[in-house]
């Protein structure tokens, strides 16, 4: 289980911002806090760190999100251990992903 505290800075354009808020509110992994002006506190809870990173990257690219700051990360899995890591050979042999996604949809 990975729990992250995020602060999203949303677009000044009200229509774009509201569309963005609607999409964020519909996302199962996110819990939205009370907005402070354009700054929106958000908690992201995912099964693992990889999923957390994918969602975070997608959030950065989401229309209406001008900026994303990470302020807290809980690292434990469900059993209390830090997530298991692949070894270095695994790191080196990971298939190239030469185009980190520019996707506009949340996973």
């Amino acid at each position: 289980m990975t729990t992250s505290g995020l602060v999203l800075t949303l677009a000044a354009d009200e229509i774009v911002r509201q569309r963005c808020m609607d999409r964020l509110a519909a996302h199962d992994d996110l819990e939205l806090g009370p907005a402070e002006g354009l700054r929106l506190p958000v908690v992201l809870t995912t099964a693992d760190a990889e999923h957390s990173e994918r969602v975070t990257r997608a959030l950065r690219e989401l229309p209406g999100v001008d900026h994303l700051d990470i302020v807290f990360v809980g690292l434990t899995d469900g059993d209390g251990s830090p997530p298991a890591r692949a070894d270095r050979a695994g790191a080196a042999r990971t298939a190239p992903s030469v185009s980190p996604p520019q996707e506009r949809t949340l996973p």
């Binding site: 729990t3 505290g5 995020l6 602060v7 806090g33 700054r39 908690v43 700051d69 809980g74």
Partner: peptide, 25 residues
């Protein structure tokens, strides 16, 4: 050692939100 209790997970989530709200403010 040890395991992470459900309570701690709940606390973790609450803490994450509190930290985010504080940073936003």
């Amino acid at each position: 050692t040890g395991a992470c209790s459900l309570d701690r997970r709940s606390f973790m989530k609450g803490t994450a939100m509190a930290a985010a709200i504080a940073a936003a403010r």
